[in-house]
Nucleic acid binder design. Sequence first.
RNA 1: GGGCUCUUAGCUCAGCUGGUUCAGAGCACCUGCCUUACAAGCAGGGGGUCACUGGUUCGAAUCCAGUAGGGCCCACCA
Length: 875
Amino acid sequence: MELSKTYNPAQAEAKWYQYWLEKKYFHSTPDHREPYTVVIPPPNVTGVLHMGHMLNNTIQDVLVRKARMEGKNACWIPGTDHASIATEAKVVNKLREQGIKKSDLTRDEFMKHALEWKEKHGGIILEQLKKLGASCDWDRTHFTLDEEYSQSVLQVFVDLFNKGKIYRGARMVNWDPSALTAVSDEEVIHKEVNSKLFHVRYKVEGTEDSWIIIATTRPETIFGDTAVCVNPNDERYAHLKGKRIIVPLVNRSVPVIFDEYVDPEFGTGCLKVTPANDINDYELGLKHNLEVIDMLNPDGTLNEHGLHYQGKDRFEVRKEMEKELHDKGYLVKTEDHINKVGFSERTNAVIEPRLSLQWFLRMKELSAPALENVMNGKIQFHPDKMKNTYRHWMENVKDWCISRQLWWGHRIPAFYYGEGQNDFVVALSLEEAAKLATEKLGRNINPFELRQDEDALDTWFSSWLWPISVFNCLTQPENEEIKYYYPTNDLVTAPEIMFFWVARMIIAGYEYMGDLPFKNVYFTGIVRDKLGRKMSKSLGNSPDPIKLIEQYGADGVRVGVLISSPAGNDLPFDTSQCEQGRNFANKIWNAFRLVKSWEVQAIGQPEYASKSIAWFDAKMQSTIMEINDLFEKFRISDALMTTYKLVWDDYCSWYLELIKPEYGQPIDQATFDKTIYFFEQLLSLLHPFMPFLTEELWHELQTRAEGDDIIVAPFPKAQGFDPEILKSFEKAEKVITQIRTIRKEKNIANKVKLELMIKAGAQIDSSMDAVLKKICNLSKLDYVNDKIGNAYSFVQDGSEYFIPFTDDIDVEAEIKKMEEELNYTKGFLMSVQKKLSNEKFVGSAPEAVVAAERKKEQDALDKIKILEEKIASLK
RNA sequence: GGGCUCUUAGCUCAGCUGGUUCAGAGCACCUGCCUUACAAGCAGGGGGUCACUGGUUCGAAUCCAGUAGGGCCCACCA
């Protein structure tokens, strides 16, 4: 059958993925082998694959496949995250389109809709990962809202509550008025925005015409003002001591308070205080015992305190108030101002500080072992410098607000028996709660008297248990699986979620397992477009990964995303990289076509072939050492590049060209066998990066016995090798390049045979002569004692090489070329001699270094001598 | 504002504890080639005061200090 000139990925990909699944190669159960475990960073259940996932999961698959080939019991656990805010927002939107308001639904009804949504869209992303070749154990797919998983989340909540780590309290939280929920500090993105600084005058109470001017960016919060604050050292306002101020529009009388918090340099040095709507003002309020007036509804509109603005959104109010304040003579001036505003990561709404009752987790003590064991290297970060960022956060860790005012999530297992702030118990079930309440109150409490907390837990409060709960350790303690697979080995994730997820998993690991959750954390970079912008859906600058796979093949895309993506570095992605990957796949395919085309016969092995085999074997062994070393250091891109060069340059460009029989000629058995063996070794090295192509060729090269598949073939280990062969070959390479250059410059076709005469220098190495003869298409290779006239010549490693003219040449040009080389060598010699004449250098540098310089000097002198003689002879 | 980090070829990056792995790789570029594995290819080639300024040293891309400019994280200046 005629083989296609190019590799056709689509067919191979479908075939082999199915094959691997059928053979259960991805499936893992505990056995006697060393485990190698990776848990996937669970993508949003309703998400679709983007380039970030591609990068992240390709790296994981490379690690997992390599471990599997190394004979480890590789287990890569997939799954999805319920992503409460994001998913609930999607469901709410969808319902709105259908004319259904969330507020019209009961919690159960809403959950039903959400689950339907999840059934419909859930897990698309996992199907997409299969296209990429991800070798996850799909039998172990988890979802953070699954029953058993949920059970473990609630158990942890109850446990931490009982340990006194969880408390409920009124706190200023980041309120998302769009999602109607509190969000954590980490979910708030601060951005600089252009705004206005409004200078508004407030009248001093009891005076006719005495005013103070306050600068604010948020005039609408005037309705919540309960004080005016100045710096006690500010002379300008000393006269306000004991005075009260009338807040404009509302005509509320508020006290003047003095606090060093106020910066006299900013604005007018006079601050309006709205404790309900600003975190700093809140602190001031606590300190100075101020009244708290919240003028905002949860959805960001003004409430009854907003008077005639009631029901209008805060931003609309700001605009209208500018006019009203101006018309009524309160607005002194406005000036442009740049300030930072917090936006919700999920909904992009402007975050409002809001006072509310929330649940918190005390972090300080809990996080101590997590900090310690990263800093002491028990858990390693790649790149290592990420530790610094981690340390900074951990040392300043704040309590974690774990409640969210959402339904799509784990409902907080707190049950209220009264209206008081502390009239509740925490338990795993209603019955248990009733029992506890009965004990607590000393009177009988029935389950139906209890009311469960309406809030759900922050999504990260479930994902922080991921490496533990995928093995059901909390619900089935000490089970075989957790004992076998935990701690997991490597975690591959994005630096953005170092605090959200990585840090908290480490915390949970030490708290619940008494041990680290993973040994290595590999931080990928952010995938950016050509212009350096982050690839995102909203910008529309992210290519569809599935289309890319269709276009370039999964292997091509995998190579494309890995080829220039060192750990921790951003990946500036361009589809041309996938082209490079596809071309590489094609190159390998064609190497296979060549090998496949040979006819094997029982003939003797030529010397050039045995030499080439010896060289390539040494080259491959030394490169395998390098590759394994790079893997150990998690330098995945470099490992790929090193493999790439071994295959393309050394195997295809050098080795195959060397041993290739002339057209139509057969090849000897020994050489053929070795060539196949090398090919198989290379395919094995490539398999983690390019799983489909390698499996395809593995089976094309030979008919295989049952179970002889590359996915479980041993990953090559370096054998010993003779470095001298590598050196000899390197020298030969230089000579070959010289001859090729002559051919090109003199326009001598490759098929024209040439003669080569060598006047050997002291360091001549003739071990590769057969190779030289073969690849340079030489009819003759002889050693001579005297120079050859009428020949092209060059000097390499102290020996002179001559190629007798095949026809007339330009002598002048030859002389000119040699004179140029002579000049360069003389300059080089001078610099070396200068160094050697420096007594301090000779005195203080190590002997080896001085000796090396001396050798350089001698070599240069030799070369100059040869060149001068040559020029003379040509003249 | 604080902390961390970076600056090497047109682009993306290697260069460990200062000296033959010292100025490198891949891509891009230029010049020849449609040579029966591969033009998604082959062969050859050009290209960098290693951000800047000082210092330490016989010797600095490499160590130190400062300057400039990026990036990331944290932070309550209305």
